[in-house]
């Protein structure tokens, strides 16, 4: 990312990571935070997280940082959402998986195709007389590249998964969760928990 102060107002890809309780209807509650601002979701993945019982969404949008920050805060305030992070592509490791269905004849007969698949690190998942399904993972440009390359050879079907991403700089969310649980008020501090604690008021 450049140091251009206008970056805040320029659209770019952001990956939003949302940790949530596993609750019916939450996907809708999160999705409408984008649709109400007419933001298109480029990719959406929901999966379990590293913590049992806690779900993790990866959402990719093309937006300005300013808007993404506001949306992230509005998602985080939803009752069943624990935490929201947003990251630029430089700040994450990510992968997408793609499946390609190609006529088996073509691969068998054309050396070029076989080499193409090997170059792209594609693996055969299913081989049948009539077709073969290959799988590859990578960034979008990589899977798109293979799709384009295979098109002349009778690509029958193509599908790509949502993005899954790991944040490079993050601490374990486990720590964060402990923080949440530690802040559970006891009976005595439920009311005015800060005022009654003098100097501790200011501890983070």
């Amino acid at each position: 990312m450049t140091n251009d102060p206008n970056d805040n107002f320029m659209k770019q890809e952001f990956t939003i990571t949302v940790y949530t309780e596993n609750q019916v209807g939450l996907l809708n509650r999160i999705a409408i935070m984008f649709s109400r601002r007419k933001i298109n979701i480029d990719s959406l993945n929901t999966s379990p997280s590293e913590i049992p019982g806690i779900h993790r969404f990866n959402i990719v949008v093309d937006e300005t940082e300013e808007v993404v920050r506001k949306v992230a805060r509005q998602i985080e305030k939803q009752v069943d959402v624990l935490k929201v992070y947003f990251s630029t592509n430089e700040e994450i490791i990510w992968q997408e998986m793609a499946l390609f269905k190609v006529p088996t004849d073509e691969i068998a007969e054309k050396v070029k195709v076989e080499r193409l698949l090997r170059e792209h690190g594609a693996r055969a998942v299913v081989i049948r007389k009539d077709y073969t399904v290959f799988e590859t993972t990578g960034h979008r440009e990589e899977t798109d590249g293979l799709m384009k390359a295979l098109e002349p050879y009778g690509l029958i079907e193509f599908v790509r998964s949502a993005r899954v991403a790991i944040i490079k700089g993050s601490h374990s969310f486990h720590e964060r969760l402990r923080e949440f649980e530690a802040l559970e008020p006891s009976e005595e501090t439920a009311e005015n928990e800060f005022l009654n604690e003098g100097e501790k008021v200011f501890s983070m």
Partner: peptide, 18 residues
């Protein structure tokens, strides 16, 4: 009920901002 793990009704007060 007076606590939900994923819900923080009051943000933590930060001394530096005060």
């Amino acid at each position: 009920c007076n606590h939900i793990r994923s819900y923080r009704p009051k943000p933590i007060v930060r001394k530096e901002y005060i």
